[in-house]
């Protein structure tokens, strides 16, 4: 009796997963068909274009760097939070607020603060720290993608903290506390006890945000450069060229899907196994 009921509880989730996989499959199918029969012509087409490979490198760069910095910052923040604050519940609400903020809003805020016509530039100019507003360093619209990386860190850091802190709290509360009563410094107890035991959550979140930022659209579109474009932006612009270019646009999506699958493979293969 009990087994049947559990299956029922899972039905809504199964339905949505099925719907999602169906959409994914149909999109992928469209990218592999030309006039009805299977062909990789669309993929050949995009790889002969000069901007696909640079775009892949650019997208990899911004998603990897933003995820890596987020991971390092999250670990640092976790240490500070665990050391200085006891209360998870109020922190949780603040993190939730940060997480529900849409990416486009973050892009807007970054533009407001860091563009050469933005708040910081105007303050620097008013304080005579720079000779002209255009002397303010380029944080957005640049070739490297600094603004995009900052935007991802802004959004993903609360997410990673929200994802990983509960475990860190519980480990710290038991084993970390035990270590400290035996004379370990807070720094030592965090980096040698709490962190290794909860690293799995951090790495899991790392893979999630890496995969997500690789395919994400709003930040690279709003804050990016005209020549260095992310894969998702290329897909969007392909669709803008005309509805009949949809299969080609979907082949860009196919590349993103391939990357996600590769990443999932690494996730399941190499992530440290759960301990007890």
């Amino acid at each position: 009796m009990k087994k049947n009921f559990s299956f029922l509880y899972l039905l809504p989730q199964l339905f949505f997963t099925w719907l999602f996989l169906l959409a994914l499959f149909l999109g992928l199918w469209d990218s592999f068909t030309v006039e009805g029969h299977v062909s990789i012509a669309h993929y050949k087409e995009i790889f002969t274009r000069g901007d696909t490979l640079p775009s892949i490198f650019y997208t990899l760069r911004i998603s990897f760097l933003s995820s890596l910095f987020t991971l390092l910052l999250a670990i640092l923040c976790s240490f500070l939070i665990l050391h200085f604050s006891e209360n998870w519940d109020s922190l949780k609400s603040i993190l939730q607020l940060a997480i529900i903020m849409p990416h486009s809003l973050v892009a807007l805020f970054l533009l407001f603060f860091l563009s050469q016509n933005g708040f910081m530039a105007r303050i620097f100019y008013a304080l005579k720290l720079i000779s002209d507003q255009s002397a303010f360093p380029e944080f957005v619209y640049d070739r490297f993608g600094v603004g995009v990386i900052l935007g991802y860190i802004w959004k993903e850091l609360p997410f990673m903290l929200f994802f990983a802190l509960p475990l860190a709290y519980s480990v710290d509360g038991k084993l970390g506390e035990a270590a400290r009563t035996m004379g370990a410094s807070p720094l030592y107890s965090f980096f040698f006890i709490t962190l290794p035991l909860s690293i799995r959550q951090y790495l899991a979140a790392f893979f999630i945000i890496f995969s997500f930022s690789f395919g994400s659209f709003d930040l690279p579109y709003l804050l990016g450069n005209t020549t260095e474009r992310a894969l998702s932006v290329l897909a969007y612009q392909e669709l803008q060229r005309g509805f009949m270019n949809r299969p080609t646009a979907l082949s860009y999506n196919g590349i993103m899907l391939l990357f996600s699958l590769l990443l999932s493979f690494f996730y399941f293969r190499f992530l440290p196994k759960k301990k007890g």
């Binding site: 619209y141 640049d142 990016g224 020549t227």
Partner: peptide, 9 residues
């Protein structure tokens, strides 16, 4: 703007 290195999207 920006010496033509980029254009608004």
């Amino acid at each position: 703007w920006k010496e033509g290195k980029t254009y608004p999207e």
